[in-house]
Design a protein around this nucleic acid. Structure first.
Lengths: 114, 114
DNA sequence: GCACTCATATAGATAATCTATATGAGCAAA
DNA sequence: TTTGCTCATATAGATTATCTATATGAGTGC
């Protein structure tokens, strides 16, 4: 994170972006910037995913078969590519959620140690 | 993680190793493999940090001024390099602990969203 | 002398994320 | 109509942490 930015905006831990994208899309299809906005919303403004991080991730995840992409029109009448979860994407969301919880508990346990 | 390994051993999230090392050393100085063992202990066996990950990290963190290194003798009468936290290392531990808590809370919030 | 474990070390590969920049379409106003 | 602004997607290049694999040496037991 660059020094002049608001410290409340954290860099991601590597490995958490996929999970956030999957979760963002779990309620409804969204276009790229919509995913970014939703991530900001559900993390209460903690994460601000930049386009240069997001779009490669979306492509990678579509390639992996977790997302389906479809061109459509945004609320602002612009062309926008809408992403939605595939069956495999929902399974991946479950797996990564469990992984996160295990890791999170391990870290919490570690930080409690005397 | 390779497929034949025990699934209870997780890969680290990138960015968490430094925090685990700092925490492992916060109670007492330890040599390299001692740090690895202590991390395994305080994370209840969840993380198994391999030498190839650990030693470069220790060197990097010593270079950053967070750790001090001193040759000594292990419990098994082998030569071993003991690491301890510097003042800056203790400050770094505090900072990274707070960072982790903020990120962890944001992820938890995200995963609760409907 | 031999095998085994403890302990440190490094080279090379992998891969995710960040910074910076580019492109184009729609819209509004001058 | 052309200028500027915002929305939206895209990609190149750099960075850097971690992983895999391998190497080296010292002590211990047989």
């Amino acid at each position: 994170m660059s020094a002049h930015e608001d410290d409340s905006k954290a860099d991601l831990l590597q490995g958490t972006l996929d999970l956030l994208v999957l979760k963002a899309l779990s309620a409804q299809p969204l276009h790229g910037l919509g995913v970014s906005n939703r991530i900001s919303q559900i993390t209460k403004g903690t994460f601000d995913v930049k386009p240069g991080s997001l779009f490669p991730a979306l492509h990678r995840m579509a390639e992996a078969g977790w997302l389906k992409a479809e061109w459509g029109e945004s609320e602002n009448k612009r062309r926008a590519k809408y992403y939605s979860l595939t069956k495999a994407g929902r399974r991946q969301l479950e797996t990564e959620t469990e992984d996160w919880q295990r890791i999170s508990m391990a870290m919490t346990s570690a930080l409690r140690a005397t």
